[in-house]
Design a protein around this nucleic acid. Structure first.
Length: 561
RNA sequence: GCGCCUGUAGCUCAGCCGGAUAGAGCAACGGACUUCUAAUCCGUAGGUCGCAGGUUCGAAUCCUGCCAGGCGCGCCA
């Protein structure tokens, strides 16, 4: 609709040029948009104002000229007016909205899909939490944002791969700390004396792991240390723990409806020599140098504030080194666009990785980091403290068990990802309109209920492929709903381009509000068969879009509640 | 100290690649169920868009400088 109007306006301006009234037919960029005040019509354009200086005429005068040359062959415009400093407002004839409904019924679950992706390969890497403890709500937010973003991109014809990067390189300090923590608990559980590591993981889950491991390995866990080589045992503990925790992470994510296409192993990067290879390549190119016994990458040559260590003086590589290799591997796998979803506390890491991507000869513009801000978990309006190491936290699993996947997912998407989010457990469980997820789902349930009743009453359902007579859909509320539905494809496209999945959630809340208002004002099932069929056609289109949108957010669209 | 993010109604937040009278929900107050689900709706009230400049016909939106909060500034991740 917007596009059609845009064309009508430009054509009118060109006509005016042909008629010799305007001295040029090269115009400045102008927009057609839906005004926020209904009195200003269905659409408005700032064309006249934007072109005032180009055309050297006052805006209102230009607007008048445009209107005189408007050609509207399909008669979609009911009336237009010049308003304010030079806006042109268009009022669309109610019947001009009807084709939207046919479009929705025709496309169903693909309504709103866009082809802007053109099959370009995109990778979305998200969560990627270290397997040192269960996921907490902060991870959950990143998981949901990443997963929904991936769905939206896929819907826009990007070829999407969802990937989880596992920090399973056994030499990392975190993993070893975990190993020592588990081993200490094993000693404790078997009645041995123990000094728990100061920096160890204190969470209860460490006991669970220790118990499992004791059952499996028994005394073997203690024999070697008495002969003086404890390393092997600690490694055993670390690997056992990490594997168990990772399996738990996987199940927790599945409970949120999240599955990955690829679980990418950091260890694999070392084993295949990819870390060594890229380090040597960078050395040859002079991108890394030695100083103080360590190896440094010249990230400051590429916009970072300082150079960064890739190999420490003790010979150990840093995470940065494997991240460089990892991102090279991503681009080498042919991804046109690489998206990383990180916690916002890692934002300082962005410049160095961008620098590395640049230095390796890839386009840093193809690399995008989505920074997801922290989550405050609230119960009874009191913040619940969270610290993995201290073991004080409510896990993601606890939260999902308590409030359900749908509520959790939806709430994670009710903020822009760069805004901090208060996750209110009490609110998430409330089954009222305070809770946006039920508010939206209720629309689907209500419509399903109407459709069932219509069927039971023997109402003639709209025939497949043939639109019923829709001329009855002409009230303000009918038009509001249709207008809303027509905005959906644009919302999807913006959400994909800006990588902002929350836009879909907000759209759904607004559509839900429009529907609930409609429901309270108009009956769908009436004595008038034509009207009934037309309204059934309308509300079932609403249900299609609600389900379609919820699906992108990974939220279920129930038929009854 | 430097960098990034945030600052919009009493509360929680949308809107931010410039548009008209800044929106929603909650909380407050007043209404609507013999009706397709009241997990809903309608109405009232509520604002120096952190502050100050600048650019523009026009700024919540862009630029600069301040203020406040969060996060980050390791041969940790």
């Amino acid at each position: 609709m917007k596009e059609r109007l845009r064309k009508i306006i430009i054509d009118a301006a060109k006509q005016a040029h042909v008629a010799g009234i305007l001295h040029t037919d090269v115009f400045a960029g102008a927009v057609v948009e839906a005004p926020n005040v209904e009195a200003h019509g269905d659409f408005a354009t700032n064309f006249a104002m934007a072109n005032a200086s180009v055309l050297k005429k006052p805006p209102r005068k230009i607007a008048g000229i445009i209107l005189e040359h408007i050609d509207d062959p399909d008669g979609i415009i009911e009336k237009f007016e010049i308003a304010g400093p030079g806006f042109i407002n268009f009022f669309i004839r109610p019947s001009a909205w009807h084709p939207i409904l046919c479009d929705i019924h025709e496309k169903k679950e693909t309504y709103g899909a866009s082809d802007i992706g053109r099959n370009k390969k995109v990778q979305v890497e998200f969560v990627s939490a270290n397997p040192t403890g269960p996921l907490h709500v902060g991870h959950g937010r990143g998981a949901v944002v990443g997963d929904s973003l991936a769905s939206i991109l896929a819907f826009c014809q990007y070829a999407v791969t969802r990937e989880y990067y596992i920090n399973d390189n056994g030499r990392q300090i975190d993993t070893l700390t975990l190993g020592r923590s588990v081993h200490a608990r094993c000693r404790e559980l078997s009645g041995r004396d123990v000094t728990f590591p100061e920096d160890g993981y204190k969470g209860d889950y460490v006991y669970d792991i220790a118990r499992d491991l004791l059952e499996k390995d028994g005394e073997n866990l203690f024999a070697p240390e008495e002969t003086g080589s404890a390393d092997a045992v600690i490694n055993r503990c670390a690997e056992f723990a990490a594997a168990g925790i990772l399996a738990g992470i996987r199940t927790d994510l599945e409970c949120l409806g999240i599955r990955f296409d690829v679980w990418f192993s950091e260890k694999g990067l070392y084993e295949s020599g990819k870390v060594r290879d890229i380090m040597e390549a960078l050395k040859l190119d002079g991108r890394v140098y030695e100083k103080d016994g360590a190896l440094w990458f010249k990230s400051s040559d590429y916009g970072d504030e300082k150079d960064r260590v890739v190999v420490r003086s003790n010979g150990q590589t840093t995470y940065f080194a494997s991240d460089i290799a990892y991102h090279r591997d991503k681009f080498d796998r042919g991804f046109d666009r690489v998206v990383d979803v990180w916690g916002a506390d890692h934002h300082g890491y962005v410049p160095r990785l961008s620098a590395a991507i640049d230095a390796m000869g890839y386009d840093r513009e193809c690399f995008k980091v989505i920074l997801v801000h922290l989550v405050n978990l609230l119960r009874d309006n009191v913040q619940i403290a969270m610290s993995t190491r201290a073991g004080e936290f409510t896990t993601l699993k606890d939260v999902v068990d308590e409030v359900g996947s749908d509520a959790a997912r939806f709430i994670f998407l009710t903020r822009h990802h760069e805004s901090p989010l208060d996750f209110d457990l009490d609110l998430a469980k409330k089954k009222t309109n305070d809770n946006p997820v039920y508010y939206v789902q209720y629309v689907h349930a209500r419509i399903s209920s109407i459709l069932k009743k219509a069927e039971a009453d023997g109402c003639a359902a709209p025939k497949a492929g043939i639109a019923p007579d829709l001329s009855g859909l002409n009230t303000v509320e009918d038009v509001r709903l249709m207008k809303h539905l027509s905005r959906y494809p644009g919302i999807i496209e913006t959400a994909a381009l800006m990588m902002e999945p929350h836009r879909v959630a907000y759209f759904l809340m607004e559509l839900a509000a429009a529907f609930h208002a409609y429901y309270n004002k108009h009956r769908v099932l009436t004595d008038d068969p034509d009207m009934t069929v037309a309204r059934l056609y309308l509300v079932s289109a609403v249900a299609v879009v609600i389900k379609n949108g919820l699906n992108l957010l990974g939220v279920f669209a129930p038929e009854s509640m």
